[in-house]
Amino acid sequence: MTDRPLPNLDHWIADLAPALGLGDVDVPLRPLLDLTRDVAHGVARPAGPITTYLVGLAVAQGMSVDDAHSVVTRLVEERLE
């Protein structure tokens, strides 16, 4: 993924997070977008958003984003072998 700005996503997060009762949150945009892309291409397109949702649940239960990213990356790589 390129490093170009994502202004629409920043605005969307700023509107959505409080509406969901989350307040001001720091969303790791690039890692999540890259992860979603890799899963969509390596597993199946519908698996991308489902994976992002499951990663969110794991993070909410205490797993770090980096650890969740590592788990997903490992599983995708295993499927591609």
Rank of each mutant, 00 (worst) to 15 (best):
R37L: 03
L6S: 02
T36S: 14
D38P: 04
D66H: 01
R4K: 12
S70Y: 02
D15W: 13
I50V: 13
P31C: 01
E77S: 06
L32Q: 10
Y53N: 03
G42I: 14
R4S: 10
P28W: 01
L54F: 08
R30I: 00
V27G: 02
L22N: 10
R4L: 11
D26Q: 13
L22I: 06
D24C: 05
P31F: 00
R45C: 01
A19W: 00
S70C: 01
R4V: 09
E78H: 09
M1H: 05
L33K: 00
V55Y: 07
V65L: 07
L16N: 10
A17C: 02
V59D: 15
A68Q: 11
A17V: 01
D10W: 08
G48N: 10
T2D: 15
S70A: 15
A58S: 12
L80P: 00
G23L: 07
R4W: 05
A40Q: 14
A47I: 03
P49L: 03
V71C: 08
P5F: 07
L9G: 03
V55E: 02
P28Y: 02
D34G: 10
P5D: 15
V72E: 04
H69Q: 14
V71I: 15
W12N: 11
G23R: 04
T51F: 06
A58T: 04
D24N: 10
E77T: 15
L16K: 13
M63R: 11
D34Q: 11
P49R: 06
R37Q: 11
T52V: 08
G42R: 11
E81Y: 07
T36A: 15
A68L: 14
L54C: 09
L54P: 04
D3L: 08
A44C: 00
I13D: 06
A68P: 07
V72A: 03
R30L: 07
L54W: 07
D66M: 06
D66N: 09
D38E: 14
H11K: 13
V27K: 01
L33G: 03
A19I: 00
T2V: 14
L9R: 06
P5L: 13
P7I: 09
S64M: 09
V43L: 04
I13C: 00
R74M: 00
A17H: 08
V55G: 02
D15Y: 11
R4M: 05
V72C: 00
P31L: 04
W12R: 06
L20M: 15
R79G: 15
L20S: 12
D34V: 05
L9F: 12
T52Q: 04
G62W: 01
L33Y: 07
E77G: 03
E81L: 04
D10F: 05
L57A: 03
G48I: 06
V76H: 04
D67I: 08
V39W: 10
V76W: 02
G48P: 02
I13P: 00
V43E: 12
D3I: 10
V27I: 04
L22Y: 12
G62L: 09
D67C: 01
D15H: 13
L80E: 15
P28N: 03
H69F: 13
V25M: 09
D38S: 14
